[in-house]
């Protein structure tokens, strides 16, 4: 297994100091042009991965050209500001109450007109808990779009990093699922708690040890999360013909 460069344990203090040193533009053009992760507030435990999202934003800023707002913004599905955030993160470590009719309609409209939702099972559940609740709600929101397994050739797996799998804190499922609207993955769902691999506790240390791959798996989960953001921003850019020969060659 190749050594991973650039990946190290950071204390919270060191993390904040590094964040302050990031090359932000002297006169940023407002938050509106930045990538701001928005986290869906629902009736269950919605904020168990806020630091993971913060870490994702930091990794994005560090590794890519995307300009970010570090702090995730909580938002309800019936908020009038929902459409200001084309990227939504929905998770919980258990069941959550059904959405209201207004929330269902709002989320449907959001996804139909171009919004992206990343759903993440923090409990790694399958058939119960978060998994059960999510599938229940998405069946109401997108009754015409059943969940489909994303093949490893999907552009999400090459939108920035070249990936063969979709690990999170867990590796319960080898792949991601998606709810498609006109061939666009409007919702991507992981049962492996991707943000769990990036989450830190209050002391600044990693909250979970990814299993079974440890640090390597954490790095791969980070890359997967970056790829998901890149997909939400660039859609099928990496499926353009100009990239195909290079990608195919590299995957040999």
């Amino acid at each position: 297994m190749p050594a991973l460069s650039g990946v190290e344990r950071l204390s919270r203090r060191a993390f904040l100091a590094a964040a302050g040193a990031l090359p932000f533009s002297a006169h940023a053009f407002g938050d509106a042009s930045r990538f701001i992760p928005a986290i869906v507030k629902h009736g269950g435990r919605w904020d168990v991965r806020s630091s993971g999202l913060r870490r994702l934003a930091w990794e994005l800023q560090r590794r890519t050209s995307v300009e970010v707002q570090l702090e995730a913004r909580p938002i309800t599905l019936d908020s009038p500001r929902l459409f200001d955030h084309p990227f939504l993160y929905l998770s919980s470590d258990g069941d959550f109450p059904p959405f209201t009719a207004v929330e269902v309609e709002s989320l449907r409209r959001y996804l139909t007109f171009g919004g992206f939702l990343f759903a993440d099972a923090n409990d790694g559940s399958d058939g119960a808990g978060f998994d059960f609740a999510l599938r229940r709600e998405l069946a109401r929101v997108l009754p015409q779009s059943p969940a489909t397994v994303l093949p490893s050739t999907h552009v999400i797996f090459k939108s920035f990093f070249l990936l063969d799998s979709a690990p999170g804190r867990f590796l319960n499922k080898p792949s991601l699922e998606a709810y498609l609207i006109n061939k666009r993955a409007a919702v991507v769902y992981s049962q492996n708690d991707v943000m769990g691999a990036l989450n830190r506790d209050v002391s600044g240390t990693w909250e979970f040890e990814p299993s079974p791959g440890g640090q390597r798996q954490r790095e791969l989960a980070t890359r997967l999360a970056i790829n998901l953001v890149m997909y939400s921003l660039c859609l099928d850019y990496k499926d353009d013909a100009v990239h195909l020969p290079v990608i195919m060659n590299r995957r040999r």
């Binding site: 042009s33 990538f35 084309p86």
Partner: peptide
């Protein structure tokens, strides 16, 4: 760089 402006224009 990737932005929402680029995403929706694309």
């Amino acid at each position: 760089r990737p932005t929402w402006d680029e995403r929706f224009l694309r």
